[in-house]
């Protein structure tokens, strides 16, 4: 057993939980002088069933929508008590607690300029309550509240671009990451912690239970999301989206289909007959996004 882990074995996350792997990576980089404020969600439920905790750092959970506000309170309290020096303060939220219900508290924290790193573990739906639609859910994904059916192709709307919206607050550092690209992830965690002021990392966190795929494919799905260009690995200091730095350029982008067909939440796009129009639409949007990124990259040269 790896006893030096700050996030220990014995947590009750599902087998193959992408978020759990990501949390380990974040804490390995942050180290023991770290305090975490955690939003309600899978992560809180699976790690703290009294009297058992998977955390070896000071950790607090208060409610769903307020990890950023709780972390803000810790920040100013430690400052006042003269205990702030050398301490990392992290706020952890799922996509529900970040994109939707916790968005206001997050925006407030960013605007006030707290030296806090907010990490969203994005598994693209309300998994803890049973796979409901969130503003993080991608177009055409079937969830328990946006089910695919005779008159439905799944979620009608696009995924909310949370990291760009956060970056628009003109904060110190914003980045996106996946566990498949874990060196890149850890580097970004380090940059976020070292940044003066608020920082934000969106970690793409495949969920075998919610996306309905075999648990061994969690890392492969992270990789495929990046290789198809659906999930872009980037970072930015400040708010000028024209200056974003793509930290990984897929050599040859794979068709989005290859990523989508691995998951049963998109099964309706392939069965009973292939929904070519929907698949084309998804592919076109990804192509459009990358065309823009390539243009920006050209300009930067």
């Amino acid at each position: 057993m790896a006893s030096d882990e700050l996030f220990t074995s014995g947590h009750r996350g599902c087998a193959g939980c992408g978020m759990a792997a990501a949390v380990r990576m974040v804490l390995q980089e942050a180290g023991p002088n770290t305090i975490v404020a955690n939003a309600t969600g899978c992560l809180e439920v699976m790690t703290t069933a009294y009297p058992e905790t998977a955390w070896k750092i000071p950790w607090i959970h208060a409610a769903f929508e307020n990890a950023a506000a709780v972390a803000s309170g810790i920040d100013v309290a430690l400052k006042k008590l003269g205990k702030r020096e050398g301490i990392n303060i992290l706020a952890f939220g799922g996509d529900g607690g970040t994109y939707d219900i916790g968005f206001q508290a997050l925006s407030g924290m960013l605007e006030r300029g707290h030296n806090i790193t907010y990490v969203v573990f994005d598994n693209e739906a309300y998994m803890n309550t049973g796979i409901q639609r969130c503003s993080s859910t991608p177009f055409a994904a079937s969830t328990t509240t946006s089910p695919a059916g005779k008159f439905s192709i799944g979620k009608k709307e696009k995924k909310k671009p949370i990291a760009s919206i956060v970056a628009a607050h003109d904060i110190a550092y914003t980045a996106t990451a996946t566990i498949a690209n874990y060196r890149d992830l850890k580097k970004k965690v380090r940059k976020a912690l070292d940044a003066e002021g608020p920082s934000f990392i969106q970690i793409f966190s495949p969920c075998p239970t919610g996306w309905r795929y075999p648990s061994e494919l969690t890392v492969e799905l992270s990789r495929m999301a990046v290789e198809t260009g659906i999930f872009v690995l980037w970072e930015l200091e400040g708010s000028d989206m024209n200056k974003i730095k793509v930290t990984y350029w897929p050599k040859e982008r794979k068709p989005v289909e290859e990523y989508l067909k691995m998951q049963r939440r998109f099964a309706h796009l392939f069965k009973p007959e292939k929904k070519t129009d929907i698949l084309n639409k998804i592919q076109e949007e990804v192509d459009e996004k990358w065309k823009h990124l390539e243009e920006l990259n050209e300009m930067a040269r």
Binding site: T8, H11, R12, Y50, P51, E52, T53, A54, K56
Partner: peptide
């Protein structure tokens, strides 16, 4: 005896919970 406020004072006590039995 439970700690007030449900505070857990033993860090990493989840190690007492063996998840190996979940395996197939």
């Amino acid at each position: 005896k439970v700690n007030i406020g449900a505070v857990i004072t033993t860090p990493g006590s989840a190690l007492n919970y063996k998840t190996g039995s979940w395996r197939t």
